[in-house]
Every structure is written in C-alpha cells, then in structure tokens.
Computed example of a mutant assay.
Amino acid sequence: MILNKFLSMVAFIGASLICTGLAHAQPEQQIKTEIQKKLGANAKVKSVSPAPVSGLYEVLVGNDIFYTDASGKYLIQGEIIELASGKNITEQRQADLNRIKWSDLTPANAIKNVRGNGSRQLAVFSDPNCGYCKRLEKSLQQLDNVTIYTYLIPILSPDSAQKSKQIWCSADPYKAYMDWMINGITPSGKADCSTPLDKNMAFAKTYGVTGTPTLFFTDGSRFPGAVQITDIEKKFNSLK
C-alpha cells in the first residue's frame, strides 16, 4: 500500500516536472495565445520568437513586427537599434521577411525590356494609373545593361484593369506601356486577348505586394515606392 502511494507520487511529480519543463521550453506559444486573445480576430498573430534583446519577444502580426515581454502584457511598437554598430535590427529583420525567391516570379507574365547586355535584372510591380510608378519609369530610363520585368497589377481602379488589358493586348506591350507612363499617350488597343493580370494579382496577394510600385531584385529583396536611381544602382553594385 505504502509502495503504491510512493510510486503514484513519483509518477505525479515526474508528470508535473515534464509539464513544467514543456511550459518553460515553449513560452512563445503561451505568449502567442495570450496576445492573440487580447488582439481578437481582427489581427492574426503569425508567430512569436525570442528577440535579440534579453527578455523581449518578437511578435509578427501579418508581416508587421512588434515586441512584447514574457507575460504578453505589453505590445511594443518601434525599432531595435544596436548602439555599438548602429545597425537597425528591426529594419534588417523586416527586409528578410519581405524577401522572396526570384525563381518564384514568372517572366512570361511580365512586360520584358532588355537594355545593353541585360545582365542586371529587376522586377517592377506597377499599376498604369499609379503616379509614383510613372515617376519611377522616368528614373529607370537612366539604367543601362539591365533587364526589367514589369508585372501589371491593376489595384487602383477599374480603369487600371482596362488600361492594363489594352497595354498587354497591344502589338507592342512595352511601347504601349511606355507611351502611357512617360508620354501620356492613352492605350488605344482592344482589350480582347488573354492576359496574366489575374496571376499577377494572385502573386501580389500571396507575397504581400499591397502598393505600387514595388521592386524586386535577384536576391529576393524588395524596395517599395518610387526608389531613387542612386539607391537602385547601389543595390545592383551590392549584388556583384
């Protein structure tokens, strides 16, 4: 009888230790559950992981980075900067999250333009009614020895879809695109051919391309907005 009680107590203590060990080994799951409960259904907590700073945890809500404490009581919005090096750790982490595989892109769904030897490659997601896209296109004219893949994603208006179809279905899509984006010549062709617009939109949704222009380089990194040509050249140089 005493032996049975002793064995039962040992088993209970062992099970308690295992459960305690698991709790200590997986605080991230507990924090995730706690924060998700507080944020509700409107925000999806993708993951929780230890942050570079002791005592803090990185919280991914969609692709946005937040930080929290071990209790999940606080949600901190801001950037972690390493003072010794001046490195913006949050910015670098965000860049990694936004990275794609270049091979995931489908060149056949893009308007292709080769200049010079075409050795440097760039993908641009663009809406024909996007003012910043038009500004970017004027800047991109300064690039040489480059292959530019332009993926049309009509996200701004129904007219964007119409123009995108007219551009794609024209005899020379690149000329029609540049005539409109740089010279303001409205596409006049019929929008009666098969287009990759739905596929481009699906790609944009999958990879979180929510604004135009968005640029991708061969290392998978993305630059949102009308990027300065100097920054594009600097990025190309870093890929050599």
Rank of each mutant, 00 (worst) to 15 (best):
25 A>Y: 03
218 T>A: 05
149 Y>G: 06
229 I>L: 12
231 D>V: 00
48 V>G: 08
240 K>G: 04
182 I>G: 02
146 V>P: 10
89 I>W: 04
185 I>P: 04
88 N>H: 03
101 K>T: 10
179 D>A: 13
12 F>W: 05
234 K>C: 00
204 A>V: 08
34 E>F: 03
219 D>W: 07
10 V>L: 09
23 A>N: 08
144 D>F: 01
169 C>G: 08
57 Y>W: 11
75 L>H: 04
120 R>V: 05
20 T>F: 12
131 G>Y: 07
150 T>R: 15
202 A>F: 15
155 I>D: 00
17 L>A: 09
105 L>W: 13
8 S>H: 00
238 S>K: 01
28 E>V: 05
79 E>C: 01
56 L>V: 03
17 L>Y: 06
185 I>C: 03
6 F>S: 07
180 W>P: 12
135 R>Q: 12
144 D>A: 13
202 A>E: 15
42 N>Y: 12
25 A>M: 03
71 S>L: 08
21 G>R: 01
65 I>R: 00
23 A>V: 11
151 Y>W: 05
238 S>Y: 02
77 Q>P: 01
41 A>P: 00
79 E>I: 00
144 D>K: 13
65 I>V: 12
121 Q>N: 08
27 P>D: 05
143 L>A: 12
27 P>N: 02
187 P>T: 07
34 E>K: 11
146 V>I: 05
18 I>G: 04
42 N>T: 14
89 I>A: 09
55 G>Y: 04
148 I>N: 05
189 G>E: 15
22 L>F: 13
56 L>E: 02
42 N>V: 13
61 V>I: 13
65 I>E: 01
65 I>T: 00
99 R>C: 02
181 M>P: 14
200 N>I: 12
105 L>G: 11
190 K>G: 02
1 M>L: 04
56 L>C: 04
50 P>F: 01
110 A>W: 13
136 L>Q: 14
34 E>D: 03
221 S>G: 05
64 D>G: 02
151 Y>N: 06
218 T>P: 01
85 S>R: 10
13 I>Q: 06
80 I>T: 03
85 S>P: 08
21 G>S: 06
77 Q>F: 10
135 R>K: 15
156 L>R: 11
17 L>W: 08
106 T>V: 15
160 S>Q: 09
131 G>S: 13
138 K>I: 05
84 A>I: 03
49 S>F: 06
214 T>H: 10
169 C>W: 10
138 K>T: 11
77 Q>G: 07
213 P>C: 11
155 I>S: 15
73 K>A: 09
144 D>V: 07
62 G>K: 05
96 D>M: 09
12 F>P: 00
173 P>L: 02
195 T>C: 07
203 F>I: 12
204 A>C: 04
218 T>E: 10
10 V>P: 11
109 N>L: 02
236 F>M: 03
200 N>K: 15
110 A>T: 06
32 K>A: 06
40 G>F: 15
80 I>E: 10
71 S>M: 02
197 L>T: 14
153 I>T: 15
81 I>Q: 07
195 T>Q: 03
94 Q>A: 11
1 M>Q: 04
102 W>L: 03
39 L>C: 10
155 I>Y: 00
123 A>H: 08
58 E>C: 01
56 L>T: 02
25 A>C: 01
146 V>A: 03
39 L>I: 02
206 T>Y: 01
65 I>S: 00
28 E>K: 07
231 D>M: 06
39 L>Y: 10
111 I>H: 08
18 I>T: 10
